[in-house]
Design a protein around this nucleic acid. Structure first.
Lengths: 138, 138
DNA sequence: TATTAAATAATAACTGTTCCTTTTAAAAAA
DNA sequence: TTTTTTAAAAGGAACAGTTATTATTTAATA
């Protein structure tokens, strides 16, 4: 039997899994990977599956509620969604936020070529202060 | 029977495979992936293996003769090794070089925190001029 | 030319992620 | 409240890019 499509309110479920994953990212300030988020979410929801974590993380990113940053070909996530960038320590792997003004000069130059800039990503690689000290005063 | 280690010249073979892979990267201006380099290298050396291409590309990168850039968690390679950055079109996937002055302001700020900056990477995402036109004058 | 070990070809293994199928459960309807 | 509906979840298989393994080849040296 066909169902008449009313075109009205589409369902959009509000699941515990999504809420928990979101909260985990908001509560983390170490840019966790999906695996780490999974680990932490399981403390609250022991039966959550890794696939769900991946799907929800992607969803939240697309909704703009969290941000994905990719380091070493691996996704990391953070609750901060304002314009900022990252420093990655090659020794300990730590990812730290870096406040950088948008380089208007460069953007303008790119846009003059007819390009549309939608997102900008700066990454700084090197040694964090701790590792720099530890690895000797070169 | 033990061999006395003279500590003298270590062997370092100069293979056709390495020469060809290097030349392919130098001749390409489209930031090819390892697979693409493999494809092109095979025109010259039909029996070269993908594993060799990966190993040689890594070697050349470490020697500073080529540069690796990662887009969408996939490695791409280029012969240019001077300081420059990239624009990535989300529609056609094309990667284009972008000339950007080093942002001394930001670097200084990072270094004031005791960090050692060894490498900097800027990526601009959006639409290239062709795709921007094609996708309509929004 | 014979020797030797660095580099290769071929292929298996690995890793982070996505996809697929069945089941569950949130929300709408009865 | 109970039933129905179907979006989302669990579990696991599949996938893609890359790395590791091993027997073989070959460039460089003796």
């Amino acid at each position: 039997m066909e169902k008449v499509e009313t075109g009205r309110t589409r369902k959009k479920r509000n699941t515990r899994q999504k809420a928990v994953v979101y909260q985990v990212v908001l509560d983390s300030n170490d840019h966790p990977t999906a695996e780490k988020v999974y680990e932490r979410a399981r403390r609250e929801l022991p039966n959550i599956s890794l696939g769900t974590v991946y799907r929800v993380l992607k969803e939240l990113s697309q909704e703009g509620k969290i941000k994905e940053i990719i380091v070493n070909k691996q996704s990391h996530f953070e609750g901060r969604t304002d314009f900022h960038h990252h420093f990655i320590c090659r020794a300990c792997g730590k990812i730290e936020d870096v406040e950088t003004p948008l380089c208007r000069y460069t953007c303008k130059k790119v846009e003059q070529k007819g390009y549309v800039v939608e997102d900008i990503e700066y990454k700084f690689y090197g040694l964090c202060s701790k590792c720099a000290q530890k690895l000797g005063k070169e």
